[in-house]
Write a protein that binds this DNA or RNA. Structure first.
Length: 302
DNA sequence: CAGTGTCAAGGTGGA
DNA sequence: TCCACCTTGACACTG
């Protein structure tokens, strides 16, 4: 089991997701921003390695305006050295990487313009992971999309569209249950037709699920992850106590997390902690896991 | 320099 | 048909 956090580290004093306004666009601004982001990403990976945090989500803003027509910079070529170095770090430390495109990437939209823009954005994500030379265990996780007043048809459209995606995207895609529209069962249905592995979001499942226990769900979801995909990915977060529905808790409740780990034995998976204080909570989770080695022993894929 | 309106991109649901 | 809301963070303008 690898433990991780998404996109931002508040300890190391730099950000790998810096961007700027479209109005301020210039090639120079882009190049310096990307350079800073990649430098910071290396710093994050070193910090993580030193702290046994072996799972990281890379922000989609790593290359600002990557799929926007305004961007004519050949960033792959320009930063090939940096990408290789980052890939080496990931491999040498036995780490895992994921990415999660923003909400406007919608494969099953009836609007073909939306679809085409989504493809461009997905290709960008795939090119980043390819440039780092990462294997297919590095995933791009995506929600199923909209319902458009016809769930069945919209799910079928997802599947159709999936098969028209470029191979570089298809092989890295994973789908995740969301908090309102598509449950993990919907994802399993799509998975059975596309072969796409299913990322389980534990919080979304609590809010928008069927009442199956986490362990039952993990067993079903785990079987969608073949050897080439690596261990299942799980997103973990908690409702902010007293906060609006869907808002994430400020920091990890270690007691609750320990119970979760206990409940999910013997399944092995990599877990992304979507908690406000980011690496803080990841550090506490790692500490907890160290104190109780049982959480790592005897786990297997679903 | 602190406060805050707005940001490339979508979808849903209520008025 | 229009608009607020979803969630999150940060840019960049305002005073």
């Amino acid at each position: 089991m690898r433990i991780g956090y998404p996109c931002i580290n508040r300890t190391i004093g730099c950000k790998a997701n810096r961007t700027f306004r479209l109005k301020s666009y210039s090639e120079e601004r882009l190049v310096t921003t990307v350079q800073d982001n990649l430098d910071c990403l290396k710093a994050m990976l070193r910090f993580n390695a030193a702290n046994s945090i072996l799972f990281l989500r890379i922000a989609s803003d790593l290359i600002p305006f990557a799929s926007h027509p305004i961007n004519r910079v050949d960033w792959e070529k320009c930063f090939s050295t940096e990408f290789c170095q980052i890939g080496d770090l990931v491999r040498n430390f036995g780490m895992r990487i994921s990415m999660h495109p923003d909400q406007f990437v919608v494969i099953n939209s009836p609007d073909t313009d939306v679809f085409n823009r989504s493809v461009a954005e997905l290709v960008y994500h795939a090119r980043v992971l390819d440039a780092m030379g990462l294997d297919m265990t590095a995933k791009i996780q995506l929600h199923v999309g909209g319902v458009y007043r016809d769930r069945k048809q919209s799910m079928e459209r997802f599947t159709q569209r999936f098969f028209s995606l470029p191979e570089v995207v298809r092989r890295r895609l994973a789908i995740e249950n969301d908090d309102r529209l598509y449950t993990f069962r919907d994802c399993l249905t799509i998975s059975s037709e596309t072969g796409v592995p299913v990322v389980l979001d534990v919080f979304h499942h609590q809010v928008n699920g069927s009442g199956d226990t986490v362990k039952e769900v993990l067993e079903m979801v785990g079987s969608t992850w073949g050897d080439e995909h690596g261990p299942p990915m799980v997103d973990y977060s908690l409702q902010k106590p007293g906060g609006r529905r869907g808002s994430h808790a400020a920091s990890l409740d270690v007691q609750v997390f320990a119970r979760f780990l206990g409940e999910t034995r013997p399944y092995d998976f990599d877990i992304m902690l979507e908690i406000k204080d980011k690496e803080e909570s990841a550090l506490r989770a790692v500490r907890l896991a160290r104190e109780d080695e049982r959480f790592f022993e005897g786990r297997s894929k679903g």
